[in-house]
Design a protein around this nucleic acid. Sequence first.
DNA 1: CTGAAAGCGCTTACAG
DNA 2: CTGAAAGCGCTTACAG
Lengths: 374, 374
Amino acid sequence: MHGTANDCKVAFPRARPAIADAARDMTDPVTTKVLAAVTLRQVADHAGVHPATVSRALNPETRQMVSADTLQRVLASARELNYRTNTIARSLRTQRSHTVGVVIPDITNPLFPKMVRGIDDALEKVQYASLVAYTDGRDERLMDRFEVLRQRGVDGLIVATARHTDRALDSLEASGVPVVQINRRSQNRAIPSVTADDRTGLQQAIEHLAALGHRHIAHVGAPQNHSTGRTRLAGFRAGMRHAGLDVPAAHIHLGRAVTMEEGERVCAALLSECPEITAIVAGNDLMALGCYDALRAAGLRCPDDVSVIGFNDMTFADRFDPPLTTIRFDHYGMGSAAVDVLMRRLRSANPVPATVRLELETRLVVRASTAPPR
Amino acid sequence: MHGTANDCKVAFPRARPAIADAARDMTDPVTTKVLAAVTLRQVADHAGVHPATVSRALNPETRQMVSADTLQRVLASARELNYRTNTIARSLRTQRSHTVGVVIPDITNPLFPKMVRGIDDALEKVQYASLVAYTDGRDERLMDRFEVLRQRGVDGLIVATARHTDRALDSLEASGVPVVQINRRSQNRAIPSVTADDRTGLQQAIEHLAALGHRHIAHVGAPQNHSTGRTRLAGFRAGMRHAGLDVPAAHIHLGRAVTMEEGERVCAALLSECPEITAIVAGNDLMALGCYDALRAAGLRCPDDVSVIGFNDMTFADRFDPPLTTIRFDHYGMGSAAVDVLMRRLRSANPVPATVRLELETRLVVRASTAPPR
DNA sequence: CTGAAAGCGCTTACAG
DNA sequence: CTGAAAGCGCTTACAG
């Protein structure tokens, strides 16, 4: 690695007093390091009751089984000893880890941090934790990562990598761990999903462009093995129909991936085939950025020569050159909604809950990448 | 929530055959849902040996204790039954969760996704998982989140929220779970850290500006309770000294937080006090973006009137208007380096390892936000 | 209302 | 080289 290492062997650097101070604050004053955690048993001994009683007293669900008197004693002891229940032991016993697996393509894709944050904040509220895994677009990693998540006892799964036909996802669901799909969804309606209302979003984009006076509008779209790619294309067609505009086959160019590179490649092809184009609706913001590049390479300016619209309103979309007009939805809310749905599945005894397909509202955010045609 | 819900109660939608197919592929053909995982005991029965033997055979560390013959039988059975060791049970027994806690301010801050990715990929290689927690800049959350991480038995901690004086961090370390600091570090040298070489980075920035001919260079800096803020300020001063340039006190303006808003606020003050300024080195890219806003508000253009340099080269820094000149370091590598250090701490029996302060190389990336002064 | 017992699924001294 | 036993720290039927 290209780093410079300073390995200074300072056995007891100046900071030591601070450490000692801190240690003095801890419950166990005897040992300075690797403080063994306090156990239920210790609380029981301290309170003079049986461990089972402590367990009951500390668990809100069983608390009413214990007398007010004992409850007080136990609570006092637990507080005094700074007791925390050992999640691992509890998980082994109850077969519930209070953990959910989150499978996304890549946290480095600016679409996902807000979604993950929405998920994690919602999970925190119900005392769950997430274990996140990445597929990096390599579909075979889903089952692989799932195996390790399962080994770790995840109670459920939030999956953002659904393909239109997704046998892996089907078999996840069949394996008995509740799944909810987020952002994208497979055609398997038995698996709940939370997505954006992609179709309406695209229609909003077309409406905007049509209102500006555009007539030759193209779609630099996402792959059709994703629901987002499909639904956005369908929304594109529907929007054009409503606006009374034609869609020559040549005006629809689909990328093989939802990336800047594919956006650029596909847009370049589009521009050379169809010089009449005055506006482009991209499959998402990343592809829109690729369109910027292709336009520049072709000596065209955005929005003067060609308007561009993205999808997602990802971080910094307002900072691009030009600031990107795009379709926004609530990424954070999508994350927390997915948790809500999953929790409902986890809590219900019913093993086959009603199908839910939640679609989040989209909104057009107009910025400087769209303007009337020349 | 502003979403539209479609709760279609389709008991057995069309996708059902796919599910049944998938279930047929599973090991246990009897029950379609909540397939109980295969246990060690089942493998033992299948192979006709004692569970302890299976355990030994499956663990690479103890594998040599078992005869080649039995090993083959056990491996075959394990494969046939698709056995996976139950991490929770193992953790309870060994008191090792193979999990590390990662504490960052906010995954939504574009600085962190790559770092987290570096961490997670490195952890994956050694069969560890991460549990990530957010402080949101609320320092008191560190201990709070740490309690829940500890409940979940994390073996170690990677913390990106160090303050210069950080009692909480000291007490974490004192509590016996190994910590490594990332991105920032406290003055406690007993806690290893992986940071960028902030000082050199700032000097590189000054060198660049001085070479362009700038003489009146200001620093829109980060708070001084963070090592990054301090070290970058020190680097700023050192760079100016090397370049033989003066640093009037008024040319140093420090924000209260490392945000766009603070960058804007502080830069606005700077501009009104010191109109002679022709270049600004910001505390990081976000603050640099805030400088863009302040310049625009003051009717100044970047780089024509004032050059701006950031720090981090975060995602899309090349896409801003203008593309941002900035100091880059390897975020991903920083994450994996932190894991390396932590793993060394976890593996070493030595409870007080040598202090390590790793500093990653920085590099100036010149883009369009810097130019010679008028 | 509380206690005693069993057991979740592993690993690891301890025997043999 | 393998087995039998104990136990990690909890929870939860089962008695009383």
